[in-house]
Amino acid sequence: MKHFTYERASDRTDAITQVAANPQAKFIAGGTNFMDMWKEGVETPERLIDIRKFPGEITVTDGTLRLDATTTNSQVAYHSQVRDRYPVLSEAILAGASPQLRNMATTGGNLMQRNRCSYFHDVSYPCNKRVPNSGCPAIEGINRMHAIFGTSDRCIAAHPSDMCVALAALGAVVQTRKPDGETRNIAFKDFHLLPGDTPHIETALEHGELIEAVEIPPLPWAKRSHYLKVRDRHSYAYALVSAAVALEIEGDKIVNARVAMGGVGTKPWRSPEAENALIGAKNNEESFIAAASAALEGAKPYQYNVFKIELAQSTLVQALLTVNSEQ
């Protein structure tokens, strides 16, 4: 709840210049995730630069779908191109948060969403993410909601986003602009970082680097895709586990597959293991069970989240069965 100064940026260059000039400055757009953590004392910027009013458009060029960073979650989820071509993305967004939050939250903000670890969110506990090298009480604490993939002995927090799970499955690209004016394309798998020894560094972004857009490749067969989320109540809850899947089927063979999981990884967790198991296999339950089994290989559960292995497997199988039964 540290007090900050605030300014609405006039354009992208202005925004980047202002944030780059102050190591304690941040961009703000929808603010849904930031304000929650600011009130908890987790976020403590000196200065906020508001980019919410930047144009937020959804455009298609040569089949590639481009979402400006300031498009809202609702705008993306209900867009006809998204609904028709990438149902997994629309469904994932609509499985997250609430209508009010989706009207505020943006595409860029969703990528920057921080985790839901109870210890991270309570500043009276140590946390390596908040204070490097202070310790991680979650490893031996209440870790039911935590990750089983990509953890380190410094941090086991699960990535909370639903939208990002779909973007991971679709192989999206994040377009950014750096303070020096350089723009770059970051593959989705490289955007979020594993905690390793530096859990406080969560993304590939430099300070002052602004997300301008997210691009989704044409992927015509992704119209046969689905997002399935399992949670403690029927809406407005974070995932225990979730699955984003897409299948291309020819005859009785799977020729292309995308699989990503939510609620299990320290970042949105794409599973090449499951995809490899599916590609070339028959589109039946047996193959789906084998793929789910491959997907969960190497998972490392903690005291209270052992269930995630079995639940993630059965959720994946259900998601694959649902996609398979379409058309």
Binding site: R116, M145, D232, R233, H234, S235, Y236, A237, Y238
Partner: peptide, 10 residues
Amino acid sequence: ADYHVPIQAD
């Protein structure tokens, strides 16, 4: 967000 009470969908 962590203490769940029933919502409309339940």
